[in-house]
Amino acid sequence: MSWWWRNRWGLAALLPALAVALGPGVRDGYRHHRDAQASAPIGAGADGWVVFAGAHMRLAELTPAGELRDYRGRRYTPPGSLRVWRAEIVFDGAARDRLAICRLLLEDAEGRTFDADPAELRGVRIPLPGCGPQPSGADARPRANPAEYATMTYFVTPASARPVAVRVMLSSALPSYARLTGG
């Protein structure tokens, strides 16, 4: 009886044993990596609101920013290779507490993301970005519904970029994030 025949069951079990030994570690490692990225967008429901982290929010407006000024009142003109965008986001009252520390990103048609309040706008008089109510005078339009509030956030992209959405992210909610479109 040859050695191969005598050890046939052991040999047959080698590959499955290797898979069982390595598989869970590889799978967990991949999952861990994937969950640290924003990979699960939550879109709007039929009513146009996105429900994320127990709060409601929607994108009221996403347009090129109008005239901007610096802290000395001088007009700020961005370099020709850039464009400044302004996003108005409406939140319900629950967002006040539930989204106290959020990160806002602009998403363009190529899938690139851009930070709110970037270094290119240092010195420009714009409100601090966030998901909580901003001080009065932060350009956001008052809401008819007193339970809601709106925030104004500024982004900078290359002039050729075409924004398509605003992302609202919480590190504790990753990989899910709110993807606000429209506006």
């Binding site: 690139r112 970037p118 290359p158």
Partner: peptide, 9 residues
Amino acid sequence: GYVMQPGIS
């Protein structure tokens, strides 16, 4: 010192 935005040199 600086956070770069995509596509902006």
